[in-house]
Design a protein around this nucleic acid. Structure first.
Lengths: 144, 144
DNA sequence: TATAAAGCATATTAAAATAATAGGAATATA
DNA sequence: TATATTCCTATTATTTTAATATGCTTTATA
């Protein structure tokens, strides 16, 4: 029941883009340095975000990445589901393919549905803008 | 972000014990047959439940297992945490050992705390008695 | 008391997932 | 044209998952 590095790094990457949004494209190299994550690994992760249209890449020198939308338009759920895959706690909730033949008689299914809803309620209502705000709050505590 | 077979099987095992509680010890072999799970694998899982005092074993012929408490006294969280380990979505929420040095400045930590709370709110309030009830509801639908 | 039925304990293994690392191709800019 | 950047794909090491396998111990009962 753990979020993997892919999802966690993707969130920090997107937050880094949101926080360092100066108008200039931001290099993977700089994000990797700030976040202390392997840049080669971040490349793979941002590639997924790029293909999904969550970020826009600019190639060549002075290139880098930019968010394509306002931070408030990205939910954490969008980012995590894209990079982690489904957040459902059991496979049988995922789609029609993974349904198991015990479904009609399985009492634990109701539990998994409740858990799934609880998870979605959080990740679908927290946005990147919230993360930015929380980050700023934390930083202002430090200034004091 | 998946519950593994250990946790899922442990729940079904405990539910099976609760549903088939005739006073007689229940054999692993029978649970395995009803649940269509490898009995050797179930042995390993029930061993954990036994050591934790969740079930009581009776050795020898006519032996088996019994619940030690009323179904309402087991929360799903107790069973899952015992068999799965911590249900926290990230390691840094687990204990003092796993704290990361980014904690004081990490905005995503708040997200993980919210997710952790949401998960706990479900698993700590659903009991084995609830699963029994849901199972009976499902079964009564079939009788019609 | 011998036997069989159960649980108990530990080792081994196959497959999959995780978490990277590596190398070079494509492309834009100066 | 040299350089800095993203893009693409392959490879790999480690860990986790999900069992399977083997043999031992306990104990009820014939």
């Amino acid at each position: 029941m753990k979020i993997s590095t892919k999802g966690r790094y993707a969130l920090r990457l997107m937050l880094d883009l949101a926080l360092n949004n100066t108008g200039e494209p931001i290099r993977i190299k700089d994000i990797a340095a700030r976040q202390e994550i392997s840049d080669k690994y971040l490349e793979q992760i941002i590639s997924t975000l790029n293909k999904a249209g969550f970020v826009k890449s600019i190639r060549g020198p002075q290139g880098g990445y930019r968010l394509t939308k306002e931070p408030a338009q990205y939910t954490v759920g969008m980012i995590l589901r894209l990079t982690e895959g489904s957040l459902a706690p059991v496979a049988c909730l995922e789609d029609e393919v993974n349904t198991c033949e015990r479904q009609d008689t399985c009492a634990t299914l109701k539990l998994w549905q409740m858990l799934n809803t609880a998870i979605s309620d959080v990740v679908d209502h927290v946005t990147l803008a919230d993360l930015v705000e929380w980050q700023n709050e934390k930083m202002s505590n430090y200034v004091i």
